[in-house]
Simulated scan of single mutants.
Amino acid sequence: MSQGEDRVIVTAGATAGLAAVHHRDFPEIRAEGDNPADAASQLVNHLTRALDSALTDWRRKSIELAIADVKSYAEQTKV
């Protein structure tokens, strides 16, 4: 198991056949896709946008670590 796998949570999406993902440290930021890898790629985009509103270095670093976890997970799950 990679470092990010235990931090990326995958659930069923709102619509049948979709996967939803979020990072354990940021449950309020979620993304959906046709499969977990696609959803993770979308989550990277959402987390990257969240960097714009990070007011402290600590928050920015937390988001950057989450992005690295999700990217690692997406790479591991690509078919």
Results as ranks from 00 to 15, higher is better:
M1D: 02
M1P: 05
S2Q: 08
S2W: 02
S2M: 10
Q3W: 08
Q3E: 14
Q3C: 02
G4L: 02
G4T: 03
E5H: 14
D6M: 05
D6H: 12
D6F: 01
R7M: 13
R7G: 01
R7A: 12
V8K: 00
I9Y: 06
I9S: 03
V10H: 05
V10N: 08
T11M: 09
A12D: 15
G13V: 05
A14H: 01
T15M: 11
T15I: 13
A16N: 07
G17D: 13
G17Y: 11
L18R: 14
L18M: 13
L18T: 14
L18N: 10
A19W: 03
A20Y: 00
A20E: 13
V21K: 06
V21N: 04
V21G: 07
V21A: 09
H22D: 00
H23K: 04
H23R: 01
H23A: 06
R24W: 01
R24F: 08
R24K: 15
D25I: 01
D25E: 11
D25F: 07
F26Q: 07
F26L: 11
P27F: 05
P27V: 08
P27E: 07
E28F: 03
E28V: 11
E28Y: 05
I29P: 02
I29F: 08
I29Q: 04
R30G: 06
A31N: 08
A31R: 02
A31P: 05
A31T: 03
E32I: 04
E32L: 09
E32S: 08
E32V: 10
E32F: 05
G33P: 09
G33K: 01
G33D: 07
G33V: 07
D34L: 12
N35G: 11
P36N: 09
P36F: 09
P36M: 10
A37I: 03
D38R: 07
D38S: 13
D38Q: 11
A40V: 07
S41G: 15
S41P: 00
Q42P: 00
Q42Y: 05
L43K: 01
L43F: 06
L43I: 01
V44R: 07
V44N: 05
N45V: 14
N45G: 10
H46K: 10
L47P: 01
L47I: 06
T48I: 09
T48K: 15
R49C: 03
R49K: 12
R49T: 10
A50H: 12
A50F: 09
L51N: 08
L51R: 13
L51H: 09
D52V: 02
D52I: 00
D52S: 12
S53A: 14
S53T: 15
S53M: 13
A54P: 06
A54T: 03
A54Y: 02
T56Y: 10
T56W: 06
D57R: 10
D57I: 06
W58Q: 15
R59C: 03
R59Q: 13
R59I: 11
K61I: 13
K61C: 08
S62H: 03
S62A: 15
I63A: 04
E64R: 12
E64Y: 00
E64N: 09
L65Y: 05
A66K: 02
I67R: 07
I67L: 08
A68S: 14
A68N: 08
A68H: 04
D69C: 07
D69I: 04
D69Y: 08
V70C: 04
V70W: 02
K71M: 14
K71P: 00
K71V: 13
K71I: 12
S72F: 00
Y73W: 12
Y73V: 06
E75R: 15
E75G: 15
